[in-house]
């Protein structure tokens, strides 16, 4: 079995209203100097294979087809 973590983040230039709200909340909690906060998503997946190359290809396809919306999001794949 292969464990993988997919991280999906908003592309630069895409407005992130939630990140803005988090940025404001951090400021109001007294954390100074938070220049920017951007919110993303993390997916932890367990795949029934021992083949790392296959897992990587499958994960890339999963990101392109469903996990990320590549119009607005980037993704990174990390395999344990």
């Amino acid at each position: 079995m292969i464990k993988a973590r997919v991280t999906v983040t908003l592309k630069n230039g895409v407005l992130d209203p939630q990140g803005k709200a988090i940025e404001g909340a951090l400021g109001s909690l007294g954390f100074e100097g938070v220049h920017q906060a951007r919110q993303g998503k993390v997916f932890d997946l367990e795949l029934d294979t021992a083949d790392k190359n296959k897992a990587e290809a499958d994960l890339k396809a999963m990101c392109e087809k469903l996990l990320a919306n590549t119009v607005i999001e980037n993704y990174t794949i990390a395999i344990d």
């Binding site: 407005l15 209203p17 919306n69 119009v71």
Partner: peptide
Amino acid sequence: LVEAGLLPGALMMNASL
């Protein structure tokens, strides 16, 4: 329709949240 790629762009959370 935008998620299916039939239309360009994306729909994000309202700016007001």
